[in-house]
Design a protein around this nucleic acid. Structure first.
Lengths: 204, 204
DNA sequence: CCAATTTAAGACCATTCGGTCTATATATCT
DNA sequence: AGATATATAGACCGAATGGTCTTAAATTGG
C-alpha cells in the first residue's frame, strides 16, 4: 500500500498564477470578441500573463480556447443542474431556466451574446474538437429538458398533446434563437413576455 | 423636357464582369467561412477578379461584405414575401416558411449555417452597419409573421389564447435557433417533426 | 549556497493580413 | 488613330498575426 502520493513534487519555483482564473479571463475575451477576432495581445492583457507563461501553461491559442469553451459549457450545465434539480418542481425549474435566458438576453448581457452560439456559428463544421463540444452540449441540454418535461407530464402539468421529446427540441431551438435575437438587445419586458407566452403553450 | 438620359456614357472599355454575380460569389465565401476567416485571396479566387478590379468595384473587404449581406437579406425577404403572399392561405404560408427552414437546416445545408446568424454573432454590437441590417431584418421577419398570424386568427385558424404578436416573436427565436442547432446537422425527419410540433401548438 | 523551476519583458521569426500601385493588354468610343 | 476606360498580374507596403526564444529576476527545495 502506498502512503505517498505518486506525483513528483517539483523543486523549483512553484506556479504563482491561478490557471483557472486565467482560463476564465481568457473565456471572457473570446466571449466578447469571438475566436478569430481575439488576438494574442488581447489574451495577454486579460490574463496578465507573459507570452512565455501563457504558451507554457496552455500550449497555443486554440488549446486555450477549448479550455475556455469547456469552462463556459460546464458553467451552463451546472446552472441547468440547479434549475432542474430532481427535488424541485419541474415547472418551477422551467420557469427559472427561462428566467436565466431573459436575464442573459437583456441589454448589455444580450449584446455580448453567447460564447457557445458564436462558436457554433464561427467554428462548427471546421473544427472537430468544437463540433464534439457543441454537439454534446445540445444533447445534454435536451436531455435535461426531456427529463423535466417528463416529470411535469407525470404530474399532470403539461398541456394536452405536448410530448416531452419534441417540446424539448422546440425549447432548445427557442432559447438558442433568443441568444441570436438578443444581439439586438431587446427590452427585458419583451423577452419575458415571449418566454411566458411559449411556456403558456406547454404548461397547464 | 429631357429626351436623353442624364447618365454619362463612358468612352473607354466597358465593364466586362458581372458585378452582381461577383457579389453572389463573395456572399457564398463569407457564408461558408465568416467575415474574419475570409481572406482577400479567398474572395479573389471565388470572384475570379484581380485585386485591382475588386477594390475598384467594391472599395474594400468590409463594403463588399455589406453588399453580400444585403444580398443575403434581400433573398430571405423575397422568400418570405412569396411564402406569406396575401392571396395565400396564411396557414399554408406558415407551413411553407417552416419547410424552408427544415430544408436549409438538413445535412450539408445545415452544417453550412446561416450568414445572417453568423454575422449577428460575429459582428453585431461592433459594427453599426451590421447592427442596422440585422435589426431591420428581424423586424421585417417579425412583421410578416404578425401579419400572417393575424390573418390566420381572423380566419379562426389560431389555437385558443394565441396572440399573433407574441407568437411571432416566439417563431423568430425558434427559427434562428434552428440555424444554430442546424450546425450539428440534425436529421431532416427530426427537424420536420420539431416544426410540426411547434405549429401544432399554434394552429387549430 | 546551489540546482531547479517559473516568472515577466520583450526581441525576434516567418507568414499573412488588407490595401495600394504599376505595367501592360484589351476594348470601346470619337 | 487617338483618347479613354477597364482588365489582369503581381510587386509592393506597413501592420498585425501566432508562435519561439533569450535574458534576467524571483522563488522554492535540497
Amino acid at each position: 500500500m502506498r502512503s505517498q502520493s505518486p506525483v513528483q513534487i517539483p523543486r523549483g519555483r512553484p506556479r504563482t498564477f491561478d490557471t483557472e482564473a486565467a482560463v476564465e479571463r481568457a473565456m471572457n475575451v473570446f466571449w466578447s470578441r469571438g475566436y478569430h477576432a481575439t488576438a494574442l495581445p488581447d489574451l495577454l492583457r486579460a490574463t496578465k500573463l507573459s507570452r512565455g507563461s501563457l504558451y507554457a501553461a496552455f500550449g497555443d491559442k486554440h488549446s486555450l480556447f477549448l479550455r475556455a469553451l469547456d469552462r463556459y459549457i460546464a458553467d451552463a450545465i451546472d446552472r441547468m443542474d440547479v434549475e432542474f434539480a430532481p427535488e424541485r418542481e419541474p415547472v418551477d425549474g422551467l420557469r427559472a431556466y427561462f428566467a436565466g435566458y431573459v436575464e442573459r438576453n437583456s441589454g448589455a448581457n444580450g449584446r455580448r451574446g453567447c460564447l457557445l452560439v458564436a462558436t457554433a456559428m464561427e467554428l462548427a463544421g471546421r473544427d472537430a474538437e468544437v463540433d464534439r463540444r457543441i454537439g454534446s452540449f445540445f444533447r445534454a441540454m435536451e436531455a435535461r429538458l426531456v427529463d423535466a418535461l417528463s416529470r411535469a407530464k407525470a404530474a399532470g402539468r403539461l398541456a394536452d398533446g405536448v410530448e416531452p421529446a419534441s417540446a424539448a427540441r422546440i425549447i432548445v431551438c427557442f432559447v438558442e434563437g433568443m441568444r441570436v435575437v438578443g444581439k439586438t438587445a431587446p427590452a427585458r419586458m419583451i423577452s419575458q413576455a415571449t418566454v411566458d407566452a411559449l411556456l403558456d403553450r406547454f404548461i397547464r
